[in-house]
Design a protein around this nucleic acid. Structure first.
Length: 448
RNA sequence: CGGGGCGUAGCGCAGUCUGGUAGCGCGACGGCUUUGGGAGCCGUAGGCCGUUGGUUCGAAUCCAAUCGCCCCGACCA
């Protein structure tokens, strides 16, 4: 992508309303623009990041055997009256009346909607287990939206719903979600710690939240810091194997880890040696619930079991805040110059900086680099503007692409460009071909 | 919703107390000189001072209402 043909409205100064790093940097990097309180437009760069995160979430859900679909943003009030939540949910629910006087609401979550779909089509235990999910915009009319997209009113969330014949099956679904979420966060370069949580308005009696440690987080958390060494890594796993999933679940949930809602100071002291007790602020980036028959019972989502008896299905729901993850990654990965994207979420893979726009030699090399990188399936962002070097570097640092190739007349005179890693700031000087090869080996593990 | 604050050019702000024809920096645009870490000089464009009503000869400034936004708290992906 050539920058002169792109839309990248970066800001040199920080808008006054932005208090935390992610909000500041998202505005400055031209990722988002506020529309009204807690509601944002996603500008082209921001959209790319959102899509990258979404894709990873999709891949991990599908790997776990979950099935994608899409439900609407607007739901009929009648479904929520059936579950009893139309009155319970309170003022966070945005209620809308259409021209016919029908009551609608902008969905804050989709338990009712999915249960309605399920009960219309599934009648037998033979069709279970089933887990459906979607990634869709949600609206919660927060009392006080803040911190940019971290606590927006409109936000993009992946929410999944499992249907199982009994509690044991639903607990396996719960564990499977735990594993799929751990893998998702790890791919995004985040260390998210599962912590025992309250169930809130979703209800139920079994829930974990996933928290990314960050000073600007809204939650206070208490945990055994030995859990920070846990990595999923590249281990293989059969998601249908209950023991394997339970093993991963146990591995990640046996160390003490609680949010302030469930924290018990006495248990903390009893279970965790003083040198491992840690307290921190953290950002909640996901939550999983098992709630049994809370919705299936009132909404009559029944199947016939192996004995021919009609029985309410056991359900759970599972959410990852996709738009919030964009902010959480920035909170966890930035410096005073700007964002540092992990490769998996970066809007472009590499930035190409032409230091002498208009110079035939540098122009040709930059064009060739773009062609070569695109040929390898990478996405370069080519700064072909007439800005000065300092300004171009500052922009690249701000938007945080993992790699930068700098092409200038001085280096080209000896046949060299410069390949710089954003995270470490380390540079090597090499031929353009060598730079491409280096990136190829990093991105595909091939060549050299 | 309780408490605090703010709406003046695309962005950051001054001017408001003490009423008198709207200013600075950055950015944009044009020219010249520069050109490997946010250049220099000269010039240009851009504002119903959030909105409505009032006081006044005169309102960004005083008064009232209203809309919006931000921060702290209770709620949440």
């Amino acid at each position: 992508m050539r920058m002169t043909r792109y839309f990248l409205p970066v800001l040199r100064e920080t808008p006054a309303e932005a208090q935390i790093a992610s909000h500041r940097l998202m505005l400055r990097a031209g990722m988002i623009q506020q529309s009204s309180a807690g509601i944002y437009s996603w500008l082209p760069l921001g959209l790319r990041i959102l899509r990258k995160i979404e894709n990873i979430v999709h891949e991990e859900q599908i790997a776990a055997g979950h099935i994608p679909m899409l439900m609407p943003t607007l739901q009929p009030a009648s479904l929520w009256q059936e579950s009893g939540r139309y009155d319970d949910y309170g003022r966070e629910m945005l209620r809308i009346t259409d021209r016919q006087g029908r009551k609608l609401l902008y969905g804050p979550t989709n338990e009712e909607q999915i249960t309605d779909i399920f009960r219309a089509h599934v009648n037998s235990y033979r069709d279970l287990p089933l887990t459906l999910y979607h990634i869709q915009w949600k609206f919660r009319d927060e009392i006080r939206p803040r911190f940019g997209i971290m606590r927006g009113r409109e936000f993009l969330m992946k929410d999944g719903y499992n249907f199982d014949i009994d509690k044991a099956g639903a607990i396996h679904s719960y564990n499977r979600h735990m594993v799929s979420y751990l893998r998702t966060y790890e791919r995004l370069g985040l260390q998210a710690v599962p912590m025992r949580a309250d169930t809130g308005p979703i209800g139920g009696n079994h829930s974990h939240e996933f928290l990314v440690l960050a000073d600007t987080g809204e939650s206070e958390v208490f945990f055994d810091n030995r859990i920070l060494g846990n990595r999923f890594g590249d281990r293989k796993l059969d998601f249908d194997n209950r023991e394997e999933c339970q093993g991963i679940f146990d591995e990640w949930t046996s160390p003490y880890a609680r949010t302030d809602e469930t924290h018990d100071p006495k248990e903390f002291e009893d279970q965790v040696p003083a040198e491992h007790r840690q307290t921190s602020r953290a950002i909640e980036v996901g939550q999983i619930f098992y709630f049994g028959t809370k919705y299936s019972q009132p909404m009559q989502a029944m199947v016939v079991d192996a004995d021919g008896q009609r029985t309410a299905v056991h359900m759970g729901s599972h959410g990852i805040g996709v738009s919030r993850l964009a902010g959480a990654i920035i909170e966890a990965s930035h410096d005073d110059k700007g964002i540092i994207w992990p490769r998996s979420a970066a809007p472009f893979d590499v930035g190409i900086v032409n230091l002498a726009q208009g110079n035939t030699a540098t122009g040709e090399v930059c064009d060739d680099l773009c062609t070569a990188l695109e040929g390898l399936g990478m996405e370069p962002l080519y700064d072909d503007t007439r800005e000065r070097a300092g300004s171009k570097f500052a922009t690249m640092d701000l938007i945080g692409l993992p790699w930068r190739i700098t092409v200038g007349p001085r280096g080209l005179a000896v046949g060299e460009v410069e390949l710089t890693e954003r995270r470490s700031g380390e540079s090597i000087k090499c031929t353009p071909e060598a730079a491409v090869n280096r990136l190829r080996s990093i991105y595909t593990g091939q060549g050299g």
